[in-house]
Lab assay of single mutants.
Amino acid sequence: MTEYKLVVVGAGGVGKSALTIQLIQNHFVDEYDPTIEDSYRKQVVIDGETCLLDILDTAGQEEYSAMRDQYMRTGEGFLCVFAINNTKSFEDIHHYREQIKRVKDSEDVPMVLVGNKCDLPSRTVDTKQAQDLARSYGIPFIETSAKTRQGVDDAFYTLVREIRKHKEKMSKDGKKKKKKSKTKCVIM
């Protein structure tokens, strides 16, 4: 069974824990209790493949930012979460993405942009803004509501699919490099 290491990042209060708990335990946590770091595991079937999701729910508070490099190193894919009623959390996505790329030393890291709290009427981040940002990053965008469960499975499952595509691409690139290195030079 394939294991996928997913990391949920975003500013404090955007609903990272609520999304994760909704996926794992099928219930909505409405009281806000700032996370330092929590880890969850769940076995699911995605596109006919049974897999184990190892999900790291991270601290959004700035005082825990020193811990970010460590979990970013171990993560295979990242859910970059903002709240649709919090423009600052949307603007912060850029910083999370840049930090992930720096730590992973790669421009090509599996990510999904997630606009959470889409059940709320007080939207300050337009869907088109988020779609445009995701398009500019070359990553999928999904709106979710941890409260109603809308888009929750889709967000995590899409990230797994992005990781699969990335692994497939990397193995193809690896095979191309191996083929090239088999060419021999004969000096007579």
Rank of each mutant, 00 (worst) to 15 (best):
N26Y: 09
R41H: 13
E31K: 07
L19A: 15
T58K: 02
T58L: 00
D30Y: 09
Q61R: 06
E31F: 15
V7P: 04
I46E: 13
P34S: 07
G13I: 10
D47Y: 06
G60T: 00
T20G: 07
G13F: 14
E3C: 09
C51P: 13
Q61M: 10
G15Q: 02
K42E: 12
I55A: 08
G10P: 00
G15S: 00
A18F: 02
D33H: 04
D33K: 02
Q22G: 11
S39N: 09
L52E: 15
I21G: 15
Q61W: 04
E3L: 08
I55C: 09
K16L: 01
V29A: 12
D54V: 04
E63D: 11
A59K: 01
D57C: 03
Y32D: 04
G13N: 10
I36N: 03
D57T: 02
C51F: 12
R41A: 12
V9T: 05
G13D: 13
T50Q: 09
D33G: 02
V14K: 07
V29C: 12
V45R: 12
I46L: 13
E3R: 09
E37M: 01
L23D: 07
G12V: 07
K5F: 02
Q25D: 15
V45E: 14
L23C: 13
C51I: 15
L53Q: 10
V45N: 14
L53I: 14
D47K: 08
I36C: 13
V45A: 14
Y32M: 05
A59V: 01
L19Q: 14
I21L: 15
T2H: 13
G15I: 00
T2F: 11
V7G: 04
V8E: 03
L6H: 02
L19W: 05
V8M: 06
D57Y: 00
N26F: 06
G13P: 14
L23T: 15
P34W: 06
N26R: 09
Q25T: 11
E3F: 07
Y40D: 01
Q43C: 10
D57L: 02
R41L: 11
L56N: 04
S39C: 15
E49M: 07
T58G: 03
E62I: 07
G60P: 01
L23N: 15
T50F: 08
Y64N: 01
L52D: 15
T35V: 02
D57Q: 01
D54S: 08
T2Y: 09
N26I: 05
Y32C: 06
E49Y: 07
D33F: 04
V8F: 04
E63P: 05
Q61P: 07
P34E: 08
T58H: 03
V44I: 13
V44K: 11
